[in-house]
């Protein structure tokens, strides 16, 4: 898959990925996080090979988190994940991310359907 950069339009911090997944993306926050909230990433994964994981990184290469199933059927979606984002991940109301799939010790671009949805969510915290 060619390297692509995509940016969300308007105010929706959401990607619904019907086709190939871009390796990098920019999500725009509709508003700043309020007091008592943090912004995290909500990622919905499709079917993944056993042991594979989706790795989410920030532009500086820092790993934000991963989506990897434990057990279950590899022919079924791997589920939904909340990936914590550090405060420095948000710059000017935007979050830039890079998404790879790690399988058998090597990284590759996500295949069609492996990443189904990516969005920023506001999580109430203490």
């Amino acid at each position: 898959m060619p390297f692509r950069t995509m940016t969300t339009l308007a105010t929706a911090a959401l990607w619904i990925l019907l086709g190939c997944t871009p390796k990098t993306m920019t999500l725009t926050l509709p508003r700043a996080a309020a007091a008592g909230e943090v912004v995290h990433l909500h990622l919905i994964a499709g079917a993944l090979p056993r042991g594979a994981r989706i790795v989410v990184r920030l532009p500086n290469g820092q790993v934000a988190g991963t989506a990897t199933r434990y057990g279950g059927r590899t022919d079924q979606p791997a589920g939904e994940y909340i990936i914590p984002l550090p405060p420095e991940a948000i710059r000017n109301g935007k979050v830039k991310l890079r998404i790879d799939v790690e399988e058998d010790g090597t990284e590759r671009a996500p295949k069609r359907g492996e990443v189904r949805k990516v969005e920023l969510v506001y999580v109430p915290v203490t």
């Binding site: 995290h40 994981r53 988190g65 991963t66 989506a67 990897t68 199933r69 434990y70 279950g72 791997a78 589920g79 939904e80 994940y81 909340i82 990936i83 914590p84």
Partner: peptide, 13 residues
Amino acid sequence: AQYSILEGQPHNN
């Protein structure tokens, strides 16, 4: 599955 941070990150990995 809908994993929390605790389950999806340290637990699964």
